[in-house]
């Protein structure tokens, strides 16, 4: 539905450009008097088509990066952590949200590993990205690749992890056997989805073209160059250190 809306707007934009361009060519060929008459109707470029808000559909997938180290031992329930958009959100060739937009995630649940082989537990959720001064709400976070740290077990729809526990203890000896803790380094990547539709005005047609050429395959090192909506780049350094 939203894709259709985007598609229609793209057609409107293209039509606007087509209508406007010949009118300029025509005016250059005609005399000044005719131009003065025709200008009011022919010149207006349909800027409203370019700047009309585009709605990004609910459940649109995004790739984010966790900027702070997290862990079942390190984190506490209801802690917040920083996240950043890794890949721009591009729809119909228009870069609507550039990579680098930062936001916030929340530790829904954290419990460090205990005695008796109790495993560490960590449940994370992505809350929002700050885009254009507004909150783009996120949901359904899942870690990607081997981002679950050195101890891993699983992801559900939010990121729910219980670490690999020690073997089931036998007798009182078990009291001193600890389960594993979960560690998630800064720089770990995760997927998430938009929790609600988000209307945004494309930055500009030029930026849209630039962003639309290679939205998903941009190397990580280029992220800082495309960051336009966020503040300090300190997080990038921290991230890269975390990944090494």
């Amino acid at each position: 539905m939203n894709m259709r809306v985007v598609g229609l707007r793209a057609v409107v934009m293209a039509a606007g450009v087509c209508l406007a361009t010949p009118s300029f060519a025509q005016t250059s060929d005609e005399d000044a008097a005719a131009e003065a008459v025709e200008t009011p109707t022919a010149i207006p470029i349909d800027t409203s088509a370019v700047t009309d808000p585009v709605t990004i559909a609910k459940l649109t997938p995004v790739v984010i990066e966790i900027l702070d180290p997290l862990g079942s031992k390190l984190s506490n329930s209801l802690d917040t952590y920083r996240i950043r958009l890794v890949e721009p959100i591009v729809i119909e060739g228009m870069e609507l949200v550039p990579a680098g937009a930062e936001g916030m995630g929340e530790v829904v649940h954290a419990k460090k590993a205990g005695g008796m082989g109790a495993a560490g537990e960590l449940v994370l959720a992505a809350r929002y990205l700050t885009v254009d001064g507004r909150q783009l709400r996120l949901r359904s976070m899942e870690l990607l690749e081997d981002a679950e740290g050195k101890d891993r077990m699983g992801t559900v729809h939010t990121l729910n992890i219980a670490s690999a526990a020690a073997p089931i203890p036998i007798g009182l000896l078990g009291y001193f056997i600890g389960g594993g803790n979960i560690e998630i380094p800064a720089g770990a990547r995760a997927s998430a989805k938009l929790a609600a539709p988000f209307a945004i005005t494309p930055v500009s047609s030029t930026a849209a073209k630039a962003g639309g050429e290679e939205p998903a395959s941009r190397p990580q090192g280029d992220m800082a160059e495309t960051t336009t909506l966020t503040g300090p780049e300190g997080g990038t350094d921290e991230t890269e250190e975390g990944l090494q």
Partner: peptide, 20 residues
């Protein structure tokens, strides 16, 4: 205590084990 984030339209899993 276990806290979980319930997401609309999605199903999650939780287990109860008995420790010594």
């Amino acid at each position: 205590v276990l806290a979980l984030e319930v997401e609309e339209g999605e199903t999650q899993f939780a287990k109860c084990k008995i420790k010594m």
